[in-house]
Simulated assay, not measured.
Amino acid sequence: MTIEEVPEVVEDLVLEHASLLVNGTHTEHPTWVEIKAAMDSNQLMWLDCATPDQGDLERMVKLFGIDDEMLSDSADFNQRTRLSEYDSYVLLVAYGVAADARTMMEVHVYVMKNRVVTVRNGPCPPVELLHDRADKMMTPTTTVPAILSRILSVLVGTFADALDTVDEELTELETSILHDDPSTSQIEKLLDLRKRVNTFRRAVDPARDLVGAGRFVIIDALADVSEDARRHLRDLAVDLAHVGDQVESERDRLSAVMDIYMNQVNYRQNDIMKKLATVSTVFLPLMFITGFFGMNFAFLVRSVNSSMAFLILGIGLNLITIIGSLYVMKRRGWW
């Protein structure tokens, strides 16, 4: 369906959890009539919608002339980072990270001539903050690539913040591992951090490859790319490269901390075995002495028949053996 085939009459319903930015103005919860009027003005517009239902997606398909694939593309989140080309638009699936440095925020960006439509699976504060800058973003000289670059820039920025948080948590965990005994909670925390970093990597690497491969030239066919937009896209490529390097750095640190944890576990086990060996070494001669004198040889029965003999052989010899064993182990640094 093309734009010319869009019906003139649009339902006068409110699009909940949405924002319409056009001509430097920002409208919260616009009606479909307002959205259609913005389209008819042929001005640059950005429609940002969070958690649309099936009916909202069907109206977008009808109003914007988007292929029916949108119904499946944006009804099914948890997709990989990708860039898909269609006849009249380009779909970019991008990700950001929430303030908790854990939750992934998925954003589907539909890029058309003079129009940008973003569909989100939930709140996305960095994108929502752009709404308040409508007067600066939506100027007569603003182009579609400029809006796209700003949306992607704020999403990429969330990865840098999340990785800083992960780095701080990893530093605290490393200190805990070095100063405390190894525990199950430490390895659970370490595995959780590794899972989060790997999730970031799966979102960042494809985006970095897309920018590095120069596939954003597709946007040139949809709208003029201003020098300001080109600068933002170059900055975006640099930011993605830095974030990608930071992800790899955190993965290396995680591997190093995992090695430290395993070394601490081995050291702990060796220390326990050393203490057990020390106790065994002390008691080994005692067991020999008590076993020897516990045998009823005629010589022993006749010779050990006084209190003095008992004190010397039964107690004194054991004390001398214990003190001697401890002295030798201390001199050799065994304990």
Rank of each mutant, 00 (worst) to 15 (best):
E11A: 14
L13F: 12
E16W: 09
A18I: 06
L20M: 04
L21A: 04
L21E: 01
T25K: 14
T25A: 08
T25M: 09
H26E: 07
T27L: 07
E34H: 10
D40N: 12
Q43T: 02
L44M: 08
C49I: 15
T51V: 15
P52Y: 03
D53V: 12
Q54V: 12
D67N: 03
D76L: 11
N78P: 01
L92C: 05
L92S: 02
A98W: 03
T103R: 13
K113M: 08
K113N: 13
N121H: 08
P125D: 00
V127L: 13
A134C: 06
M137Q: 02
A146E: 15
S149N: 11
R150K: 14
L152W: 05
V154I: 08
L155Q: 10
L155I: 13
A162I: 03
T171Q: 14
E174N: 11
T175N: 12
L178N: 04
S183A: 15
T184E: 15
K189R: 15
R196A: 09
R201Y: 01
R201I: 02
R202D: 03
A207R: 01
D209L: 02
R215C: 02
A223P: 00
H242N: 08
E248N: 09
R251D: 08
S255P: 01
D259R: 11
N263G: 13
V265G: 03
N266K: 09
N270Q: 11
N270L: 07
M273Y: 01
L276S: 01
P285F: 02
I289S: 03
G291W: 06
G294V: 11
V301M: 07
V304N: 06
V304F: 11
F310W: 13
L311N: 07
G314T: 04
T321C: 15
I322R: 10
S325D: 03
R331V: 08
